[in-house]
Design a binder for these strands. Sequence first.
DNA 1: TTGAAAGCGCTAACAA
DNA 2: TTGTTAGCGCTTTCAA
Lengths: 342, 342
Amino acid sequence: MKKTTIHDIARELDVTFSTVARALNDHPAISAATKAAVLETAKRLNYQQNKLASSLRSGRTNVIGIIVPSLDTSFFSSVVHGIEKVMNENGYSMLLYQTGESLKQEQKGIETFLQSRVDGIISSVSGEVEGREFYEQISKRQVPLLFFDRAINELPVPSVTINDYQAGFVATEHLIKEGYKHIAHFTSDQNLTIFKERFRGYRDALQQYGLPMNEDMICKGRLSLEFGKDSVTRLLEQEKNFDAVFAAEDYTAMGALQVLLERGIKVPQQMGVMGFANEAFGAFVTPSLSTVDQQTIRMGEETAHLFLKLIANKDFYGTTPERIVLDPILIPRHSSQTVEPR
Amino acid sequence: MKKTTIHDIARELDVTFSTVARALNDHPAISAATKAAVLETAKRLNYQQNKLASSLRSGRTNVIGIIVPSLDTSFFSSVVHGIEKVMNENGYSMLLYQTGESLKQEQKGIETFLQSRVDGIISSVSGEVEGREFYEQISKRQVPLLFFDRAINELPVPSVTINDYQAGFVATEHLIKEGYKHIAHFTSDQNLTIFKERFRGYRDALQQYGLPMNEDMICKGRLSLEFGKDSVTRLLEQEKNFDAVFAAEDYTAMGALQVLLERGIKVPQQMGVMGFANEAFGAFVTPSLSTVDQQTIRMGEETAHLFLKLIANKDFYGTTPERIVLDPILIPRHSSQTVEPR
DNA sequence: TTGAAAGCGCTAACAA
DNA sequence: TTGTTAGCGCTTTCAA
């Protein structure tokens, strides 16, 4: 079945194709009669606009590209959910690209997006190592760019993030106020601002409350259940003097929690545990896992709204990039709350 | 900055633009020298192919459209993860559309995809009520279509699903073999095959083992933690004679589990609980939640592979649709295993 | 209100 | 091996 074009409709009605185009696009200069006739014929012939042609000509695609490390993560899929929802309501479609934390993939994704002439790119970067020059290609081409969660602070790009420093601080402060004094920190070995900031918050909280920070109690690795287990096991076997764990991610915290319980160490009475990200399981485990919520869906929505606001303004690259910083929400649960005095 | 086109490169090198096009597309009939020169100039001028123009002309976009109810669900985001990964490796980009279980959104998504001239559509439908004629638009236009997880069996469309009947059967059978005799079933009120099949499996397992099915013990509603809590509470308060719950979804099972524990009912000794979907939390709760794994990432990969295989064949709509059915994997955990005899 | 015409940037068939 | 030519289907300006 050959596809119907505006020419087919024009032929059918004995008008020119530009009249048809006007009718279809709600152009003001068109008689109600022809418009109705065109719409009727379009429907009858099963006409469907060719966005490729229209975009090629007009220079707008109404498509934005989204780059995330992976969708197989509740955090990112949840943010993407929020972004898509809002963008969709505003007439945009979404091209999606997963990088798997690989810089090369990230570059490939951006190239594809640029070639597809997306109207904008929203990205959460893969690790801030060298070789990010390709982001400059985006600004060179004047394509609106936004970061969410993981931004490159050196670049003048608008972003929506949460205050990871504050998050690290309040998480640690909470543990301190609950009476824990020797708090270990499990974090990522990835070179990402988010983790450095959480660490900085942890460090400053200890300092502010006059507690010493012990380098031995900082464990870095690939965040995961296993890493949490291994790290806490190592600390225990080295007989380090610690009474709480603050992990930069919930699965890691969960691993620690499991080992502690297996070994008969009482949580929260003997040891406090604090995670990060508010994964669904945290509320269900026993003891329930204290954590920090990152407002994922809200982050997605804010990102989309900021994007829409910024592209409404002609001169995207002429204005100082707006950076929205969301507040993290501390979720204290049983793994860190000592009901009885110790 | 004006965008570079093949014409700019041609002018620079004093050749025609078709020579440039050939060089860029690795056409065999081109001298090594010109090719090198073109590539060098292209890079120097920051050339980037315009896919809109290329697709418009060639009739292929290398884009596929994916339709899911929501990404804010570990199941769908995980499957999409798998699909994107494989499709990306094979040179496809992915347009994403969430329906929020709304038929109208689903139709809108499909229309957008068709207008964008995607090379194929992969969809998980929103509820099999009336008004699905728009799917016929897809076949009319000869656009390859695939279903995953939620298929419309009446349509001759290839699909990748899991055997929900078998899943319902083995889950129930497992409970029976563990000694439970009065098994309640909590399921969705959505009119979806997947839930009807799980229910059918449940019913047949009871029958096969000579256990009566009691209509009072079938609860239908919007699957959620709350629904699980409410349902089990109601059964308890009505003093129904039941000793196990098989929920068609993990959060629902979790709700039931929480209420049981709160009321001091021992799981699994007094009551067995079985979920569905293998959500992350199931492994971490106490007692850990028995469930059925749906092989999400594998489902995504299989879907992508089937799609690639089918479009390699010219005549997509001429061949009988292949339906791949994956086996569910029973994951027995503590919530259903009575270690000691009862 | 409608028509005519140009062209977005590319692919691909045919000719030289 | 390279050039010529004709569109793909639409938007948009100018003219009638």
